[in-house]
Nucleic acid binder design. Structure first.
Lengths: 336, 336
DNA sequence: AATATTTGCGTAAACGTTTACGCAAATAAG
DNA sequence: CTTATTTGCGTAAACGTTTACGCAAATATT
């Protein structure tokens, strides 16, 4: 039924081994014969049986990608970056979405592990500890993208300390003194802690002792943004807020609007992430944009080069993108 | 290095065949022995080598999923539905993102086809004709989800004719007589035509001859929505618009706001799709919500049952979800 | 107690590809 | 012209699992 390498070999008067060498471009073969074989493969409608190849090959060129199904939409951009680099370097990606249900998580991970993988990349994943233990137990190469999990897994992400530090500087320069940081402290304790430290240190460098109440949030969701406004009440005790993710910031913005506040007059917002979502609001969100595509590319590149140690940390740059959600709080004074 | 079925067999004093029968739950075996073997597998850290299994098995339980990388975010919901059903029925999903670059498309499809697949599901995909030809040429089962491609591929989608027809009815009942339909006529000619027909027929049933100029749009993008407002100019020649996708409708809404129009007083909007994006705008978008999760579930279910013919068309229901973007145009008269 | 059926498991082949090894022919070097 | 090297390709084993077939032991049926 299906065409195999053997069929091609028969038709070409060669052995399967030769055909294999030609189609995989390994070993020695005659250039003319090679062209004949390639043409035959094309015309006979041959498709490599990857399972058979995987089975017989030592080294896999397949990289598994675990993506949270509660789908922060930057995952798309990371995957896009990965895919372009994978294509370029002739690797293959298998994407699997991870649900919150633990049983399902385990099944997903097992089904990934049951393939012959070069590595598994985890995108900003909120993965259960037991599942993580399973992953660490197998000796497949791991990498965490846009997140830092722990010191056993190499990571590629923005420098979260610097990012928040820079945002605080920017807000301070615009006259803000009372600043909030809205977002989850779970499930990325390392990232959250770095942000918190950047936040606290930046404030203290400006001679401001931070108010612990101003670091708030349970989850990285839209609802958290909405809730934040209700939690602090109007008038807000701060003049600017940093949203830990675009979707949170949109929640902040809508929550503020729903409470009859004007943005940015009554509240300045800077969001972390800077995906296309920032363009959908009015005013457009001011953001520190992460370079997700680059993260994806670097992930594949560094996996291909096999130079990752458990402690490797790669940072990608962020850039401040001006929208319309930051104003000086002094202006508000003038207006009154 | 890695644990195989043979290792387990040795330790259990059995043959590999028996272990295989036990772990796959096929054929005959003793219940006690089975438990012992399962425990051994667990404790030894065994992972099935899926490549080997695929190679030796006649029938695959793997379903490939082609997802557009220009990622309409409802794809997530479809995948979520697929994954839950796949988990339930013990199928496995391999997700691949399709770029717009044709070479890359071909590589992606080939890499899918080089696995032993039960079927390939295509999500709302704008796939190149040559690539589609490749897919049709192989005799792998295909299914199109949330889109109708042609009469050679079974599909699961909303009834696009009814959906638009119902929206027109709803808008008519709210007093609207001049209605526009904004969105692409490509790359889903069948879907676009059905919507167009639903649009035209519904209007004509209300005694309105439709204005062809009011069907407008190049792509299903945010920009199209923005452009639409500029294209028609202020004041708009219609009182209501149907956006073919949430992202278009957000474009319409923002475009209108940018032109100093008020929503819904100056323009009523109903959007097709009804993803979470509709909640992010102010006012919240009124939508006809498609049941994407159900589509995903049905896709897996019908593939599992193997009763799909090339002409099979399955419709899922849509529901009108009231937001704040529809007002009677008469109110505008009152206000003036 | 003799025969029939069921149960539990082992044997061995098969899936399609890759690859180490080796051999003969072709080419190069001396 | 002889010896050394390179080229092109075939042989055969290996990857880990599944499964048709068959056999002996256990159990059921008369």
């Amino acid at each position: 039924m299906t065409i195999t390498i053997k069929d091609i070999a028969n038709k070409a008067g060669l052995s399967p081994a030769s055909v294999s060498r030609i189609l995989t471009n390994r070993g020695r073969f005659n250039a003319e014969t090679a062209q004949k074989v390639r043409d035959l493969a094309e015309s006979m409608g041959y498709f490599k049986n990857q399972s058979a190849a995987d089975l017989s090959q030592k080294e896999s060129r397949v990289i598994g990608v675990l993506v949270p199904s509660s789908h922060t939409n930057f995952a798309d951009e990371i995957i896009k970056g990965m895919q372009s680099k994978a294509y370029e370097l002739n690797y293959e990606l298998i994407v699997a979405f991870v649900e919150s249900d633990i049983q399902q998580q385990i099944q997903t991970v097992k089904s990934l592990l049951s393939r012959n993988l070069l590595a598994i990349a985890m995108l900003a994943i909120d993965i259960d500890d037991t599942v993580l233990a399973v992953l660490l137990d197998t000796n497949v190469q791991l990498i965490s993208v846009s997140n830092q999990l722990n010191n056993k897994i190499p990571s590629i992400s923005s420098n979260n300390y610097d990012t928040v530090h820079d945002i605080v500087d920017y807000l301070y320069d615009n006259g803000h003194r009372d600043i909030a940081l809205i977002g989850s402290s779970r499930p990325e304790p390392i990232v959250a802690n770095l942000r918190r430290q950047g936040f606290i240190n930046a404030l203290s460098e400006h001679g401001i002792t931070y108010n612990p109440d101003f670091i708030w949030g349970v989850e990285n969701t839209y609802q958290t943004g909405l809730d934040a406004i209700k939690h602090f009440g109007v008038p807000l005790p701060f003049s600017a807020a940093i949203g830990s993710a675009d979707i949170i910031s949109i929640g902040l913005l809508n929550g503020a609007k729903d409470a009859q506040l004007s943005i940015p007059e009554d509240l300045s917002i800077v969001t972390i992430d800077g995906t296309d979502l920032t363009q959908l609001t009015r005013p457009i969100l001011t953001s520190t944009k992460q370079n997700f595509q680059l993260m994806g590319q670097l992930a594949i590149k560094s996996l291909a080069e096999k130079k990752l140690s458990p402690h490797t940390i790669i940072f990608t740059d962020t850039t401040l993108v001006l929208g319309g959600t930051v104003a000086s709080p002094l202006q508000r004074g003038k207006e009154n």
